[in-house]
Write a protein that binds this DNA or RNA. Structure first.
Lengths: 343, 343
DNA sequence: ACAAAATTTTTACGCGTGTAAATTTTGCGC
DNA sequence: GCGCAAAATTTACACGCGTAAAAATTTTGT
């Protein structure tokens, strides 16, 4: 760690006693040089701390080792959690992931992709905003950069999609609720931005028919990504209007359910499956806070690990194969029912 | 948007009828060229979509327009929220912010800074891990890159610190609780990683003395960043052992309080200030979920806007002045008491 | 020990932009 | 129309590394 400062690879090559092209080769793949050579370089690395200039490297590469990860909302613990896992896996694969949140704003989403393109990324993982996304723009982006979509699917966009099987989620919760009591109504936003919401509604309807029940859907007003607040306001209104068709409620997602439970508490309605409970509430996603709601929330959990590892693996194999795969691959993972106190 | 593809500034200069050095000047500062020249360039930009190669630019600049934002944990909505605001302000100031979360891991924190250095950032905003941070490493980093610390202070590190005034937080909550009922005990982790926790404990002790009460502190076990779980387990234990010294509890932060409330609900203890309530609970931070807990949480709110805008403004002025300021500036913002149902 | 194979060295150019210096052109007031 | 200052152009080099081609060296197999 002493000696004069090393300014570039030229100088580092000199102090390590190896020619610059060979040093360059080493940094691109340490195993591509002879063991004795590698030894000398690594000895020099111990003594002088030199690291190649990342800008000069990337200027000459067609593709960098950068990977972009774009999610709709980093303040949502669900996305924070899954992008953390994805980030980790990219690092382990030797790439440089960068995280971007579009904060529910379609314009910001396109801006992010626009800037991302300049970074010549090897690939991108996108959880798109959904209905509001500028599909045309994303499609154009996908032509330039190998892209895997996750969490929410935009038909035909990207080389692959990895997500959760909404039918499995709803099927399990409806099944459980019906088996242990009254069949649930479905509580959701009127105009959900996320395409998963539409799939969940359809799955609810199908599953209810399958079980011989009439589906009952409660749709509440609200725009944007403040789901808890929207769920809370919708629940307060539904309770006051006595417009809930059943006393078993299946929320489309946990964030709505968090608001729903908050409203129930405020209105003095006891939630749970025991005696003296007015309502049963269940939901989907297994939000990191679902275990701390009052009561703790019965929900269907994403297979975080499988989704994130499969997303990254898929992207890696696309990157390695160099070209685009001929068929767009879609992979869905089933949910795992998590029984807690709310139902 | 038609015409042949533009490969570099040379070609773009040609189609716009301006020399390359002038075009370069334009991209560095559109106002530095004559209006008629700017017009020609912008007309060409309409027709051909060219954007300068970011790697070639940064290679020749001593400093880039990059700004690094490092927080301990992106999955914590508090940090997600404040970094979102900071990110926005950096963008508005014409910089390119990149967000990094160290996930509570000191080694990852140093790795992030290590990689950040290679990006030759114009400046960095760091909310350090705290007690676990590698102070020596961060100090070395600060010698190379203008750095503003926020949220949690490491004495003497960075050019400035911007955060919240912990005394103001605790002072207001203790004051309110004492004024409206029994003086609170203080509920916290035994070995908090975050230095704010220590300041809050001391502020609690001081304020209690000032009001003529004996401070009572409940310290619970637990390591890491799963504060809700730690708070929940600690609360369950304290309730079962009947070791809570008072029936008014002031939690060190909202995430602990979320766990605390969850435990109370599970144990059938009603929380609030009305009749039939067994406990009053208050806390600090105004976590985004504090309004959805059961009951909703009385807490002291950060001045998010002031902290984030002041952090960015401070960094910008340091960057513009080019050098290091002679004195390390510390700026603290007071809390705002938010009264809800829990106390 | 010798030929073949593998690796390294030497040499040289390219990537796309910043920027300095000298020169030419433009804009503008009188 | 003149003269001056401001702006643009021309020319040239720099940044740090990838990489190709040919030559020199080392290693490997027998």
């Amino acid at each position: 760690m002493e000696g004069q400062k090393i300014r570039n690879m030229e100088e580092f090559a000199e102090v390590s006693g190896i020619s610059r092209p060979t040093v360059s080769k080493y940094f691109n793949d340490p195993d591509s040089v002879r063991k004795s050579t590698r030894g000398k370089i690594e000895a020099a690395l111990e003594e002088y701390d030199y690291r190649p200039n990342i800008f000069a490297i990337n200027q000459n590469r067609k593709l960098t080792k950068n990977i972009g990860i774009v999610v709709p909302n980093l303040a949502d613990p669900f996305f924070a959690e899954i992008s953390r896992t994805i980030e980790r896996r990219c690092l382990d694969a030797g790439f440089k992931p960068t995280l971007y949140g579009s904060h529910g704003d379609p314009q910001l989403e396109t801006e992010i992709l626009d800037n991302l393109r300049l970074l010549k990324p090897a690939g991108t993982l996108i959880a798109p905003l959904g209905r509001l996304s500028d599909k045309g723009f994303i499609e154009a982006f996908c032509r330039d950069v190998p892209t895997v979509l996750f969490d929410s699917n935009l038909e035909g966009l990207g080389e692959a999609f990895v997500g959760s099987d909404n039918y499995s989620f709803v099927s399990q919760t409806v099944d459980y609720l019906s088996r242990t009591g009254e069949a649930p109504c479905f509580f959701e936003m009127k105009n959900p931005a996320n395409p998963n919401a539409n799939k969940r509604r359809q799955a609810y309807i199908d599953k209810m028919h399958e079980l011989g029940h009439a589906p009952k859907i409660v749709q509440i007003d609200g725009e944007g990504w403040s789901f808890e607040e929207i769920g809370r306001a919708g629940a307060l209104k539904a309770i006051q209007d006595k417009s809930l068709p059943t006393s078993t409620v299946l929320c489309s997602n946990d964030r709505l359910a968090i608001g729903f439970l908050s409203a129930c508490y405020e209105m003095g309605l006891r939630v749970g499956s025991g005696d003296g409970c007015a309502l049963r509430v269940a939901s989907h996603d297994d939000h990191p806070y679902a275990r701390f709601t009052c009561p703790s929330l019965t929900t269907a959990a994403h297979d975080y690990d499988s989704v994130s590892s499969q997303s990254v693996d898929t992207l890696m194999s696309i990157i390695e194969s160099g070209g685009r795969p001929s068929t767009r691959n879609e992979q869905l993972f089933p949910a795992k029912l998590i029984l807690r106190s709310s139902a």
